[in-house]
Every structure is written in C-alpha cells, then in structure tokens.
C-alpha cells in the first residue's frame, strides 16, 4: 500500500489561513489503513478545524481516491457541500490530492498527509518500505528482496563495506538488505546468482515520467 503520515497541522493551518470553509476528502484504501484518511480521521480533523474556527461543509472517505472517475461519481451527491467550501483538504496520498485538483479546477486543494512510500503493513499500522516503483523489477535476481528500496544506497551489487552483523551502517535499526538477499539466495540454492554482476539500471522506465496517457 501507499504509506502516508499526517503533515504538521500547523503547516496545514497556514495553508488554509485565508479560507473559512473546508470540505474534507478521505480515502478508504491505503490512507484508511494507515490511519490518516479513513472515517475516524476525517471526523477528528473536522473537530480540529472547527476548534480553529473553520466550518466543515462536508466530508467523505471515497472508495479509492486514486480512481478519478469513481471518485467523481461518488462526489456527485456532495456537489453543494463542495461548492460551499473555499477549499478541499485531502486526507489520502499525493495521488488522491491530485484527483481532487483534477476534478475541481477552480478550488484550492491541500494535502493533509505526507506520502512516504510503497510498503507493507507488518504489524497493525507498522509499515516497512518495500518498493520504489522503479518500473523495471529486479526481484528475480535478488531473491524477492528489493535492494533499490531496502539498501540505503540502493546498491545493485552489494553489500557495501558498511554492513555489520546484518545491520546497515546508517542505523542499527535498519537491516542490511544485502545480508537478507545473501541469506535467502543461499537458502534457495541460488548462491551462484550472487557471483553475477547486475548491470546498471534504466531509471527512466518510470511510467509517470512519460506523457499523460489520456493525451489531454
């Protein structure tokens, strides 16, 4: 899922300084799981904003904020509430915020969250980064563990000289991804793969860097 964290509320307050009325848009997918954009968080935000003297004209956690057309349909019944609002605060990931910007051309939109990474929930609301969305998967060569994401230097031919007792040099809390890769490839009888040099990557596979698919 796309992992999000709440932005500093004071920054958000600064963002909406000139606005009196606000519509809150959340998302029932990743943001809800992260506790940053589901129904309870929308209500909590409503309370915070009201305490600051703002009027919340309406709120909804849409099914998935990254679905532009679906979100458009879901928001139809909220037309009046949205019209009444000076701005929209979006409690989802960066994609959801941009859905709102796309659907409401003349309405300011503000993100309530910082979008962190694509990760796994390993325990309840504990997340670990797993994928960098690079567009050219190398997990076939690295035992299903991504060094681009999980090695601090993103080394394709690690580990570097800073790997110590299975930990990364940058923090004792961080596992060395290459230690994991070596252990896994050894266990699965694929140690030979570690003797091959993985070639430089094409970093420009990333689809978002390509032209808008709708050719607007």
């Amino acid at each position: 899922m796309i992992v999000t964290k709440r932005r500093d509320f004071n920054k958000l307050k600064e963002n909406i300084n000139r606005h009196k009325t606000v519509f809150l848009l959340g998302c029932s997918e990743c943001a809800a799981l992260c506790g940053t954009g589901g129904e309870p968080e929308l209500k909590e935000m409503k309370g915070l904003l009201e305490a600051e003297g703002k009027e919340v004209t309406g709120l909804i956690a849409v099914k998935s904020g990254c679905q532009v057309l679906g979100t458009k349909l879901e928001l139809k019944p909220f037309k009046e509430a949205i019209n009444k609002a000076d701005c929209i605060i979006v409690m989802s990931c960066g994609a959801g915020t941009q859905t709102a910007a796309e659907l409401f051309e003349d309405k300011p939109v503000y993100p309530a969250n910082n979008t962190m990474y694509l990760g796994n929930m390993t325990r309840f609301q504990v997340f670990d980064e797993r994928c960098s969305l690079c567009g050219e998967c190398i997990l076939d060569m690295t035992g299903g563990i991504c060094p681009i994401t999980r090695c601090a230097k993103g080394l394709l031919n690690g580990p570097c000289g800073g790997s110590q007792a299975g930990k990364c040099e940058i923090s004792p809390d961080m596992t060395c991804a290459w230690q994991l890769i070596i252990e896994r490839l050894s266990k699965t009888g694929a140690f030979k793969r570690l003797e091959e040099i993985i070639p430089p990557k094409n970093w420009n596979q990333i689809p978002t860097r390509k032209p808008d698919k709708r050719g607007k």
Binding site: Q179, I182, L194
Partner: peptide, 13 residues
C-alpha cells in the same frame, strides 16, 4: 564487513 563469507565473492565481482 559482513557477511564475512561473502566478501571474497564480492571481491571476485
């Protein structure tokens, strides 16, 4: 650096 047993393979690379 660790893993010690792998270092020589990395040198070989």
């Amino acid at each position: 650096a660790d893993p010690f047993e792998y270092r020589v393979h990395r040198l070989a690379k």
